[in-house]
Nucleic acid binder design. Structure first.
Lengths: 194, 194
DNA sequence: GCCCGATGTATCGCCGCGATATGGTCGGCC
DNA sequence: GGCCGACCATATCGCGGCGATACATCGGGC
């Protein structure tokens, strides 16, 4: 997940770790944290895999040589990195449907192929519906006997999931209006019920 | 987190791993998963720490001897385990405010001291408000220039956090009505603003 | 003159996850 | 009668991410 985020950002412009994290927060907002303990090891990993590369000090001594507080390693995406990014953006697996994964994918949706966008949205919708139905049945079937606090927890969860489904429907409709062909075929649906 | 959940459940009745996970799902619902890869290592860890113990086969051969599908290790909480449970229930640290931690704590709220309940709810409220404010300022300040999908992500997030704050207020009011004294003192508040 | 907070890179151990292996039992279906 | 799939039940492995922590430099406020 962080791999996608880092490659996606570095595809737009070279950056160093600290800046990378600020950008991450700006996009994902307080929705997804990503701590230092995740970021730096990921950068190492990506560098070893040659998906990103450390920029040479470049301007010899000037430019950042004096203004940078500390050494500052600036990374840029490599050709292999771009390939990998396309690969990640093209995937619509289960991990693209869970809370974290979906958020990250959405943050790079404009770079995602329309057909994949649709599959991710539909997949996410199915996932959220499952959760909603689970909560709903717990509340109706065992509504009386469960702990008050647990019930409250399920109530707010149910409300949240219901709203997200409606929100997803709006996004899906929007996508459909953008590219009315191919998307229905891809998901095997002709018309979304409800 | 799983430690609290397991100890909390075993405090109610001895159980084996599979049953434990079903109970977990019943309480936390689809809000918090907890896979096998978390559960069994946790049971090992707790057993090694002597917080839980494996029940002796008990009835010699009868009882579950024939109906059980497989060996089935039944665990029960020990005296140390109960102490540890009280300790965990008495904590109101930062980890009790994040999504996962808060959910688990809430599921065992009826066993949590009233004063601690209050601090957890207030802490969670503060946390959610921070997230809300972050989303809100991003939307208003950089509302025009950010990516459409990112903006949508922030919109739904903002809506969700606003609702959760209101929901928390209801819970807090309820708590306050249960034990009107001590709670305000504990949190240094006299009246919740709005 | 001093401390605080932001900038910046980095590591460590732990927790939880997803995938996977293994195998017993039961009901239903052909 | 035999086979299949669903459920019961335990367990491991590698890895991604987190929180805490360390260390260093700079600008600004008191």
């Amino acid at each position: 997940m962080l791999e996608l985020a880092v490659l996606g950002l570095l595809h737009e412009a070279p950056m160093h770790g600290y800046e990378l994290r600020k950008q991450l927060h700006a996009r994902l907002g307080p929705l997804r944290a990503f701590s230092w303990g995740s970021l730096y090891p990921t950068l190492r990993r990506l560098q070893r895999a040659a998906l990103i590369a450390e920029q040479a000090p470049a301007g010899e001594e000037r430019s950042w040589g004096r203004q940078g507080r500390r050494s500052r390693k600036v990374y840029e995406i490599t050709a292999e990195g771009k390939d990998r990014l396309d690969e990640l953006l093209g995937e619509a697996g289960p991990q693209a449907y869970d809370d974290d994964g979906f958020g990250v994918h959405l943050a790079f949706f404009s770079r995602t192929p329309a057909e994949v966008r649709m599959r991710i949205l539909e997949g996410r919708r199915r996932r959220v519906e499952e959760r909603r139905d689970g909560l709903r049945s717990t509340l109706t079937r065992a509504g009386e006997q469960i702990d008050r606090y647990t019930r409250e927890l399920h109530r707010i969860g149910l409300d949240t999931t219901e709203r997200e489904v409606r929100w997803l429907d709006e996004l899906i409709d929007h996508e459909r209006s953008l590219s009315p062909t191919a998307t229905d075929e891809a998901t095997g649906r002709t018309r979304r019920p409800e």
